[in-house]
């Protein structure tokens, strides 16, 4: 079963980056994986590939606490970029924060599909990806 999606992870934690990359690889969850250490780098990539359908991610896994541009700042930038994007992108917030303020904040942003507290195990990641695939199939 060939995986149709490009997954994008935005997180400054190198160990997390390692574990995610490994999970995706092991379970063959993606056609392609993008990893950025902070929001600014990710926005830079999206801006560069605005019309490039093949390079834009289908799902973004976004951390909150990052240097330079944190998750919230990224969402602001993303929302202003969204009308010009050539693709429907699903965003999951993946964070170690159990702060109810952060949770409520995420709930108020409609572009964020879900708020998931770390750690995220490979199976859970697969379920999330497959859920998006099912939805996309329904739409198609």
């Amino acid at each position: 079963m060939s995986k149709p999606h490009i997954l994008c992870f935005i997180d400054d934690d190198e160990i997390y980056q390692y574990t995610i990359a490994r999970s995706v690889r092991t379970h063959e969850l993606a056609k392609k994986t993008l990893i950025f250490g902070d929001g600014e780098q990710a926005i830079g990539y999206l801006t560069e590939n605005l019309n490039n359908h093949e390079e834009l991610p289908d799902i973004i896994f976004l951390d909150i606490n990052m240097p330079i541009m944190d998750g919230w700042h990224f969402m602001d930038e993303f929302i202003s970029l969204k009308p010009r994007l050539n693709k429907q992108i699903v965003i999951y917030m993946i964070t170690s924060s159990v702060d109810p303020i952060d949770y409520d904040h995420a709930k108020r942003i409609s572009e964020i599909s879900d708020y998931i507290v770390k750690p995220i195990k490979p199976e859970m990641l697969r379920e999330l990806v497959e859920k998006v695939e099912r939805n996309n199939n329904l739409v198609n």
Partner: peptide, 16 residues
């Protein structure tokens, strides 16, 4: 919460 959770969750995954 912020600074201990993430290494601990990483450890969890690594053990897995």
């Amino acid at each position: 919460s912020h600074n201990l959770r993430s290494p601990v969750s990483n450890l969890n995954l690594l053990i897995h």
